[in-house]
Design a protein around this nucleic acid. Sequence first.
DNA 1: CTATCTGCAAACGCTTTGCAGAGCG
DNA 2: CGCTCTGCAAAGCGTTTGCAGATAG
Lengths: 153, 153
Amino acid sequence: MLYESLRKELRSRKYRMTAQREIVLKVFAESGERHLGAEDVYRKLLEKRYRISKATVYRTVELLSKLGFLRRLEFGEGVYRYELATPDAETVHQHVICRNCGELLEIDEQLVKQLVKNVEKQTGYVVTDYDVKFFGLCPKCQSKNKSKADESE
Amino acid sequence: MLYESLRKELRSRKYRMTAQREIVLKVFAESGERHLGAEDVYRKLLEKRYRISKATVYRTVELLSKLGFLRRLEFGEGVYRYELATPDAETVHQHVICRNCGELLEIDEQLVKQLVKNVEKQTGYVVTDYDVKFFGLCPKCQSKNKSKADESE
DNA sequence: CTATCTGCAAACGCTTTGCAGAGCG
DNA sequence: CGCTCTGCAAAGCGTTTGCAGATAG
């Protein structure tokens, strides 16, 4: 299971398995929320009475990303967020974000895949990963908001 | 010209035209580099012996974005960058970024436009803007790097 | 055992804020 | 002249780092 493969991956790269690393990974595995910042993880651990230092959380989250257990995201808030990277399923998700209410919707990966192909062809790059975000108004806010769009941003 | 339209836009929104605002805009208009962080702008001003406070630079850059003279970008470095938003030409650009050497290439906007259409259709959102980044290896680094891909990130 | 990892606290870099004085309109 | 803007310095926030002691293997 997950922690076993963490152990294996760590060993194969000459890192050590520690309680802290397992616990941090567990936060992601068990958390309902999907996009956690390092700071969020730290707070969650405090709530659960785990005594892991903030520095370790930051280091761990980065390590877990490097190992492929987490994926680093970014929504232009000035914070890095992370989520569980389930390597089996295709769970990369690109988003449409409502500028008004903040609603966040995933978009069909297939649409993006197509684009990636074309980009590779056009640029000669090998694309290993990507980050696609669309901003706009969700259907709900389209009907509501005709006026206050100006002062808000 | 540019500073005139800045003056107008400011007045129409009840802001004032100040030397600082013009100067900051000029930095973008005259700078060769395209993606400047607020901190970069501040340093450039220091070099040129302009005595504008950092706080003003931050405030100005934000204001200029709000007014549509600048556009805020973001490349996952934990810094906001800005560029001149030339409203006439279609200068939105999406990028392919090399994970190895950092080279940054623009990709054809048309490719992305297509995707936007589909996303709107599928989600019901009105997409006002977007942010599309691809990461991978540029042709040069593809040939060079067969080995050190691991430790680097 | 010893190299890696952790905790702590301090440092960091970017960004924001409060306030008193400067200056645009 | 009044209201906005600026400069300054301090604080804020997320993140990183140096170091001594703890711990995995």
